[in-house]
Design a protein around this nucleic acid. Structure first.
Length: 460
RNA sequence: GGAGAGGUGGCCGAGUGGUUGAAGGCAACGGUCUCGAAAACCGUCAUACUCGAAAGGGUAUCGAGAGUUCGAAUCUCUCCCUCUCCGCCA
């Protein structure tokens, strides 16, 4: 059984659509294989057939039971039956029959539940199928570069890393962040804090004023239903920070909130369980939020600097579309994210991820990688995915078409962008020989016209 | 935190144990009428799963979960949410 089949209140157990899998077994297995997932076709078939057999007999038994109960009702309503006493013996007889049916039902239900558990276990960790455009490959090496923009800065000196610059300029403080919280946290100070705020405002203004996204302020903690809807649960529980809301209260069931790993979760779940109107699509939502990630499994990786943190800020873009337009909207979404980098004049490249490198729910995904002069590396600063109906099925997000039909919507999202990869790029690419950092022109209005960040007088 | 009142279909709103998936109204959709429209009238109007070639059946769903009962929208318990009053507070 899915954890809380009732808890996830849509009653859906499908990750992929069970009916679709049943009818396209070969194709599903082939698609999953591209992602490096071995799908047990025979197992699925056996479980799925068993489940339906059990379900059918449960339903037949219930139909009989309902019918007999109805007859009891009819007998008891009719006074002539009751007076004669004949009614009572009939009723007793019927009640006996119902009782024996009830026992059979209990048995069959247990069996059906067992099959459903098996099916759930088989499907819960099954990712989405890759779109036909997605290149073959299992690791990042097989990602395909589709375009690049901008030139790497030519610095006539050995460029410093952002953590070197940040500390020298007094704008980033990793040591004290570690003291007050722990590793993988950053304190921004002075011009650093202001630069961060400027970046976020700049990106939000761009996406809302020019690109048609509706700004939101959302809760930074969400419930399990939401995490399931966008696909973080059940598979990635250990990657998220859980906040027990009611621990130790044995009268109540355990209830947890989760710190959002991305604003995709609250934004997409805003429409969970709703039927949208085709006329209003595509819906374009954005929010600027901190993101919280445990980064389990990344121990010892990228420990320097701010590129891999437990908390970072991001402007997120989310779209709800029809199946017919989602790929077109996907391209536009990528362009919206790219525009940020272009205006900041940061060199980047667009990678089309191969089947094995995509996230769990994605059918097609582009990563934007920005160049960091200090480490001489390309860093992912945005990931733009089309989930097709994968999230919509889990979160029960539909739309009513102009033809009157109600179908699952498509959901998309992408970062627009993450500052933990952007701010280092600015510091490293815009650094000057004297150790100062130029402010990209697009950001200057957001910094009160400041053009350059210098080291502050000592002692501040 | 204390005291109350509630949560029913797209919306409003009946329903307090029995052929109730749920009266009535509004909205929506199709039609009649009209040169056209409005009005009026007639009809259709939940979702998921499942059986079936189809026609058409069946099961589940009245905030969620568990229980009582032959039978629950209706009774019991727990939880969630909303509203009102009091208290506290950024």
């Amino acid at each position: 059984m899915p954890p809380g089949r009732g808890g996830f209140n849509q009653g859906e157990i499908d990750m992929l659509d069970v009916k679709f899998v049943r009818e396209n077994l070969e194709a599903v297995a082939a698609g999953l294989k591209r992602r490096g997932v071995e799908f047990d076709q025979a197992g699925f078939k056996a479980i799925e057939e068993g489940r339906r057999r059990a379900l059918t007999s449960v339903e037949q038994l219930k139909a009989q039971k309902n019918d007999l109960s109805r007859q009891i009702g009819i007998l008891r309503r009719d006074p002539t039956n009751m007076v004669s006493g004949l009614g009572n013996s009939k009723i007793n007889d019927l009640m006996g029959q119902v009782n024996s049916l009830s026992m059979q039902i209990t048995d069959k239900e247990l069996e059906a539940k067992k099959w459903e558990d098996d099916l759930w276990n088989l499907l819960k960790n099954t990712p989405n199928l890759p779109h036909a455009d997605v290149p073959e490959g299992l690791t990042a090496e097989q990602n395909r570069q589709v375009r690049a923009w901008g030139d790497k800065p030519t610095l006539p000196f050995k460029p410093k890393t952002h953590w070197e610059l940040g500390e020298a300029l007094g704008v980033l403080d990793f040591e004290r962040a570690a003291k007050i919280t722990g590793a993988r946290f950053t304190v921004y100070r002075g011009a650093g804090a202001r630069l961060e705020r400027a970046l976020l405002n700049f990106m939000l203004d761009l996406q809302t004023n020019e690109r048609g996204y509706l700004e939101h302020q959302v809760p930074l903690m969400v419930n399990a239903d939401s995490m399931f809807g966008t696909g973080q649960l059940p598979k990635f529980e250990e990657d998220m920070f859980k906040v027990p809301f009611r621990a130790g209260d044995d009268k109540a069931e355990e209830r947890n909130f989760y710190l959002i790993p991305t604003a995709e979760v609250p934004l997409t779940n805003l429409r969970r369980g709703e039927v949208l109107k085709e006329e209003e699509l595509p819906l374009q939502y954005t929010a600027c939020t901190p993101c919280f990630r445990k980064e389990a499994g990344a121990y010892g990786k990228d420990t320097k600097g701010m590129v891999r943190q437990h908390q970072f800020n991001k402007v997120e873009l989310v779209k709800f579309t029809t199946p017919e337009t989602s790929y077109e909207e996907h391209e536009k979404l990528v362009a919206d994210a790219e525009e940020v980098l272009r205006r900041l004049k940061l060199p980047y490249r667009v990678m089309l991820l191969c089947a094995g490198d995509m996230g769990f729910g994605a059918a097609k995904c582009y990563d934007l990688e920005v160049y960091h002069a200090g480490t001489d590396k390309w860093w992912e600063c945005s990931s733009c995915s089309n989930f097709e109906d994968f999230q919509a099925r889990r979160a029960n997000i539909k739309f009513k078409g102009r033809d009157g039909r109600t179908r699952l919507a498509h959901t998309l999202n992408g970062s627009g962008l993450a500052t933990s990869r952007l701010l280092p790029a600015i510091l490293e690419n815009y650094q000057q020989a004297d150790g100062s950092v130029l402010v990209p022109e697009a950001l200057r209005p957001y910094l009160g016209g400041v053009e350059k960040i210098f080291a502050p007088p000592s002692g501040r």
